[in-house]
Simulated scan of single mutants.
Amino acid sequence: MKKFKSIEESQLTITELMLPSHSNFSGKIHGGHILNLMDQIAFACASKHSSNYCVTASVNKVDFLNPIEVGELLTLKASVNYTGRTSMVVGLRVESENIRTGEKKHCNSSYFTMVAKDENGKSTPVPGIILTCKDEIRRYARSIIRQKEGRNRTSRFSTNSFKTEDYLELLAQSNSKIELKD
């Protein structure tokens, strides 16, 4: 196994025509179909980088920015943004293109954390990535910060440390009604 790999070695792009069978009741492409495609390309990118089977550990923030129409071409781009010991963060960008007009829309960006597995299903080390420009350094640093913020968010709202009184003012300004039973 190589100790480090360039980002380009595992980058992938797929393009697929969006069919009526991919649509929801309003005639737009179903979000679940898009998520399935995103998971597939994240798997392929991470597996290519690690030379191992990979599993999805988490998906960070999925915002559907623009609807995707039947008949449009959907392009998904995947790139390893971060490598840990056995995990990788794969950055994804989803764009649609109207075949008739050539208009392109950014539909989604997301980050999938993938973990490499060996033939026994155990987590296995992955090669690091070689950072060659400021954008790659920015993406790598952003992944580190995102992980730290996620850990802080999780611990701040754990059952053992959460203090209701710290959040009552926040909830008072929301569309909720508190009727505590205990």
Rank of each mutant, 00 (worst) to 15 (best):
K2E: 14
F4W: 05
S6N: 12
E9P: 01
T13R: 10
I14Q: 11
I14H: 07
T15E: 10
E16P: 00
L19P: 07
L19C: 07
L19H: 13
P20R: 10
N24C: 04
N24T: 04
N24R: 12
K28M: 09
H30P: 01
H30G: 03
G31N: 06
G31Y: 02
G31E: 02
L35A: 11
N36G: 09
I41Q: 01
A46H: 05
A46K: 06
S47G: 12
S50L: 11
S50E: 09
S51Y: 10
C54R: 08
C54V: 14
T56Y: 07
A57T: 08
K61I: 14
K61Y: 12
V62M: 10
V62H: 10
F64T: 02
F64W: 13
F64G: 03
N66E: 15
N66V: 12
P67K: 13
I68H: 06
G71E: 00
L74T: 01
T75D: 03
T75W: 03
A78P: 05
V80L: 08
V80K: 05
N81Y: 04
Y82M: 08
Y82I: 11
T86L: 09
S87F: 01
M88Y: 07
V90R: 00
G91Q: 04
L92T: 02
R93H: 09
V94S: 06
V94E: 03
V94P: 05
E97M: 07
I99Q: 12
R100T: 13
T101V: 08
E103D: 14
K104Q: 12
C107H: 04
N108K: 05
S110L: 07
Y111I: 06
F112Q: 00
V115E: 00
A116W: 03
A116P: 03
K117E: 11
K122T: 13
S123I: 07
T124Q: 01
V126S: 06
I129C: 06
I129Q: 01
I130K: 12
L131M: 09
T132P: 00
T132Y: 03
C133H: 13
K134N: 12
E136K: 02
Y140M: 06
A141P: 00
A141M: 15
R142T: 13
R146P: 01
R146L: 13
